[in-house]
Design a binder for these strands. Structure first.
Lengths: 206, 206
DNA sequence: TCGTGTGAACGTTTTCACAGCG
DNA sequence: CGCTGTGAAAACGTTCACACGA
């Protein structure tokens, strides 16, 4: 089935899943492509294309069944896999992420956080126990951590990233404003807030 | 000159500018396209294409002059404009952004933050004075605020976004996990952390 | 030789447009 | 009718490949 689904499609599927979850809670049972698309800020044609990828089929009369579609996307995205994620670096950004993810319902569970500040190690931050970076390998096994949110200072980001890779982490959400050098089987998503703000600011005028 | 530059190119130009800034500090004077591209995690061909957009020309023998190229990009991106930005909603995310932007050198200046919590109003948070949302219009004029970082709870995000639009803000970096309904001359960049983490987690396995 | 600048080719992503069906 | 699913076209973004120059 997965004959090359693009990264963009995956990102949108995650979004649909989230929206469908909200709809389910509010009691709606079916939805048309254009309605769901509008909630996601996309066109109906694009949504239908994306849904082709997961192999779900709607009905021309009823549209899509919320529960069924949500389930199909979930199966497609998550498979039978049950890994977790961790926050590495509990400074301002790391803490904010922990707080944010605690509120948001997400299918990705954050099971631990790591820092090297002795004052933080051992404490529980927004529901997450903080461990020393020295324990990274051990805890990754314990919690089956497969991805990480890297929120350490730029100066040590490369070093820490290598540690993550050596612990078999294959997905990194990188907040450090540098280009990480990692093996190509490791997926890195760079979130460069300063650059993004600059872009927004550029488009704000004209 | 600006005959339709894509959003992606703009984002990369912001990135080049940042990297050039670091290079300048470290004393380098010229750089070849493949070197700069590698620091940005891109190909040389793409970098050269992007540089075409700003109308700068390098020398085949020396490569690009750091100072000259940086200046060209700066002129292209910033023009003679000197607006500022603001953080709206000083919860965990808002505070983290304020702290982060205080450290990062950015050409976009954050001049104020807004909240409706009386405990925060009037205080200075990471160097930024916090105002009531009621003062939004007044302070936007005072500080020439043209873009905003929206970090309020999802439930009030749409309402606050409308307030921003009515204060003539035309660029919004939106951290609320909802699709904002705004006029089409307002640029919105959605940063959905939960969805992004899910995507990273998906690519971490397989 | 090893750079840059750029037309042209290529690949990817989005949109169009329409058949088929209740 | 108005919806879905989908081939085909269009739009967009990236990469190739080569002319030209020190």
């Amino acid at each position: 089935m997965p004959d090359q689904i693009s990264e963009k499609t995956i990102a949108r599927l995650c979004l649909y899943k989230r929206i469908l979850g909200e709809l389910e809670v509010s009691g709606v049972e079916t939805i048309y492509s254009h309605e769901l698309a509008s909630r996601a800020g996309l066109t109906a044609a694009q949504l239908r294309r994306d849904i082709m990828a997961v192999g779900y089929f709607g009905s021309p009369t009823k549209g899509y069944e919320i529960a069924g579609l949500q389930h199909s996307i979930r199966v497609f995205l998550e498979g039978k896999n049950t890994g977790t994620s961790a926050v590495v670096g509990v400074g301002n950004i790391g803490r904010a992420i922990l707080a944010y993810m605690g509120l948001e319902t997400s299918s990705v569970h954050i099971t631990a956080c790591f820092d090297q500040d002795p004052a933080k190690i051992g404490s529980v931050i927004y529901g997450c126990r903080c461990y020393s970076l020295d324990e990274l390998s051990y805890r990754c096994n314990q919690y089956n951590i497969q991805s990480a949110i890297l929120a350490v200072p730029a100066g040590v980001a490369q070093l820490v990233a290598e540690k993550l890779v050596s612990c078999n982490i294959r997905g990194i959400m990188n907040f450090a404003p540098i280009q990480l050098q990692v093996p190509e089987n490791v997926f890195v998503e760079n979130i460069n807030l300063a650059v993004t703000l600059e872009k927004v600011h550029y488009f704000a005028r004209k």
